[in-house]
Write a protein that binds this DNA or RNA. Sequence first.
DNA 1: GAGTTTGAAACT
DNA 2: CAGTTTCAAACTC
Length: 722
Amino acid sequence: MNNQQSFYSLMELSPVPTNFTMMPATKITNFFHCDNRPSTLNQLPSQNNIGSAVFDKTEDPKINFTKNHPLSYNPNLYIFDASSQHNLYFHTHNNPETNDFSQQDEMYHLNHKLDSVSILVKKDIQHDNVQQQQPFDADQDVGMAKYNNICTPPAHSNNGDLFGMVQIQPDSKYLQTLTPTQKNNPAQYSPKSNIPTPNIAQAISSASDKLNQCAFNEQQQFQQLINSNNYLQNNLIYSNQNAFIVGKQEYFQGLNNPMNGFSSSQNNYLQSISKNKTHESIKEEMKKRQEQMNQQLQANCLQNSYHNKANVQSTSSIHSQASISSTSSINDQSISNQNNNNVSLKISYPIHYNSSNQMHGVAANSLTSSIHVGSSSHSVGGIYTANKLNIPLSMTTSVNNTIVEEKERDLRDRNQQNSKDSNSDDEGYDYSNRQAANIDMQEFARKVDFCKCKKSKCLKLYCECFLRGNYCNDQCICTECGNNDKNLEEREKAIEEAKTRNSDAFNLKFKITNNATVTHKKGCNCKRTHCLKKYCECYNAGLKCTDNCKCEGCKNTQDGLKMGLSGGGNSGVNMLTKADEDCNSSEINSQMLQSIDYQLQQGPTERKISMCSSTGTSGLQNRKRTRSEVLDQLTSKNEIPSQNQTDQLEPEIRKKKNSLCIKQNTQNSQVNAGSQIKIKNSYQPNQTSYNSFEQNFVYQTSNKNGANFQQNTSSMLKKIQS
DNA sequence: GAGTTTGAAACT
DNA sequence: CAGTTTCAAACTC
């Protein structure tokens, strides 16, 4: 299976136009726009260069927009002026060093009415150091875009920084490779005949409509199947190795490791219940079984939460950029479903990009109340997980809030109990620092331990409570404390004074830079400690010093802590959302930042930020995948990364992870998105949904084949058609 | 637990 | 802005 095939297999299901082709993968591609065809190649002037992209098969694509090019920073989806029409040129060449064109290079002229031009530019600068020229760490997002005929924004656009993405998938018959002669004389060659002048805005709109229609149709189709009386009997339960059950995720989750395939006993069970049984009796057995499973899962959930086994595996593979919850949420979900035997269909539309109402590349709308608006990435989520940790709730509106509250309460109690019980099986984790489950990040971010101020009356920034904008609390052992609600006037005055001295006084000391690295805003001034003691604010936060620092003899200079802001799906902890109204990314980002700040303040020793993987890798690898890996994954050439890779993690990293209690499901694999999808029972009409769709019908028998959805899709299609 | 060191905050 | 003092935390013993 190659990319193209799987792409088309996707299209099998879909009335979306199938006449797409892949962007030629070459060293570098420059994008130009010209209103008029240039007479020579040289007349593609630099100011018309939208940007360039490296589409190297072996590296992560990097797209750079031409600095200051007005088109590069159109905050809308439509990078082109919708009122005018453009020819789009992209020129590929093999000399990234010089960026010059040569005779060996290829030039494409595209004046097709594009069915799919996905150009996403997000300009929502929140941080003070955003540079205009952004390396675009596309990671799986580009792959996603290649699969979808419309790209989704990169996950890290949630950060509010500037990101851009150009994805062009023209119909190959309109994609004309120019000969060297044509290349040098573009005005003289004849484009293929009868090619309509592109109206990109319309094309995008049209593609969106088609996608919508497609989604709608499939939802109907799916619903019909579900409603079919014979459905269970005919489609859902097979006594062969592919057995699985739609909407009854408990069956294929397995008791202990939901990410694993069927055990032999499960297979036996499935065989036993599907052999010579009526629809009703199967249903009955399923229900019974489900109850058992739910009980177990409930117990597991609490147990896992108790041990902080927040699983930061995110939706894996490029198939699943969107909102599939982590394994941790399985349990929550199944609890919430325990009285609900219906298949839950959750529809989302991946085509509305205005990122104010979407995260994770999936727009939330009135139909997507169950969309997980989670942290913007594993890592951020990891921090959140690390802090909150105890209850990796996948919060959706479908989750029964009462249950959630009960669980939270229970966990709080457990935590308190555990704090007192030093003999507990805590696997090395310091419970004293553990936060009770708390879905209010604001509250969480404000939380601070206590101070011991003696002379500042807790009204100077020396006092950490004051610094964080908190009142001192009953744990503080400060003297003559003025930082309380009985001293509001003086406190207010102190706040004003502090702000006068430094208007930034109460703001976060850290920022996420444009390349997704967390740094200290002002930098440190350490003189004696080489920035290797916690006196150093950078070091203390687990960060490396930067050029902003004025430290002397700094030995804290290696690569900054990378925030893996690129990532698919949700991390182990999802934020509570009620869909539309809560999907304001900037607000969430702000909360995330506060959480990050809090985490950073905690220092590196016990709770240094753990970077989990991005890209939906299992988190075990703690790294991003290269583009070739992404492609390999797509083509199922590669085996799933083995558990060995976990073991290969530096002990230090593992230790940190353990200290964060971000424990991985060791058998999780990159391409196990299907499992997660099943877990959530979601059906989404984007790429993920195809995976979901397929996975809901044909269970993968081997982790190694998890991404082989073409095969699965085909077989499913046959079943549907028959 | 007492004393010292440190660098940010506060002050001049 | 630079130099000095104050401060509470980090660190050492």
